[in-house]
Simulated assay, not measured.
Amino acid sequence: IRNHVCIDFQSSYYNNVSALKMLAARTNWVLTSEKNKVSLYTLEENQMLCFKVETHVAVAAEQVFLLLSDLRRRKAWDHHYQECDVITDSDEDDSVTKRGKVQDFILLASRRRPCDSGDPYLIALRSVTLPAYPPTEDYNRGEVLCAGFSIWEEENTFTKISYYNQATPGVLPYISTDIAGLSSSFYCTFASCSAFLEENKESLASLPTSTL
């Protein structure tokens, strides 16, 4: 299975990261709400709702990247996650993971360090199909078109975190049914994320490649 995934998803690795970069580069984001330095932006087009959440933390960008790259730890700060299992590591920067709760997802996770000074760290997520993991009666299989984190290093070990999601109609009800609810949900989630990062800012020097 490991070799099969490596062959089948080579083009998906590039598309995964490229799609996140294109979403992040959009210039028509609308600031919808802001609370305690957590900002929610939305973008509606082609019958889809895209959203961006931004916050800042007093944690080094490399450490933020390492902590958020380990999707198995996301349940520590995101109440939407009950569990996340690594299905296969395609290489040190790409893996396929299974997330499960009432809805489950099969996600290709790709992480990239900056290529040049001033570039962000990237953690890109998108749904993929694996014959070995078909939908089951126990869970409603969801789809993520494009999601992920852009992590920018700033001065004095401050880091700007931007989270993006291009939501499908099937995912939106799982998150919230209105913008007000969406704002409240993401404020709570990213306040928890900031606390998680602060509490663990000294806990890791590096991650083994098998964790992503």
Rank of each mutant, 00 (worst) to 15 (best):
L68V: 09
R2W: 03
E54L: 07
L49G: 05
N200H: 07
E34Y: 02
Q103I: 10
R111G: 03
L71F: 08
R74Y: 05
A180K: 14
C146T: 15
D91A: 04
Y14V: 13
V59N: 03
Y41P: 07
S95Y: 03
A147I: 12
E154K: 09
G148M: 09
F158A: 08
E45G: 09
E45N: 14
H56T: 12
V128N: 04
V30I: 15
E143Y: 09
K75T: 06
T159P: 02
C6K: 14
D85C: 06
I179A: 04
K101V: 00
T97D: 04
V57F: 00
V38F: 02
L68C: 07
H79V: 09
E198D: 10
F186T: 05
E34P: 02
S127N: 05
N36S: 15
D104V: 03
A191G: 00
V171I: 12
N16W: 07
N3V: 08
E143Q: 09
Y139Q: 14
A60I: 12
L125H: 10
L43R: 12
G100V: 11
Q47Y: 11
C146Q: 14
S12Y: 02
G181A: 01
P131V: 01
K201I: 05
A109N: 11
V53G: 06
K160G: 02
Y13N: 14
S90F: 08
R112E: 15
A76T: 09
T42M: 06
L31D: 06
S11M: 10
L130N: 10
D94A: 11
D89Q: 12
K37A: 14
I123W: 01
S184P: 03
Y139L: 14
K35N: 11
F186Q: 07
F186E: 08
S127E: 05
K98M: 04
P208W: 00
F158S: 13
E54N: 09
T97N: 08
V38Y: 07
A76H: 11
G142F: 01
W152E: 15
L107D: 01
R26T: 09
H79S: 13
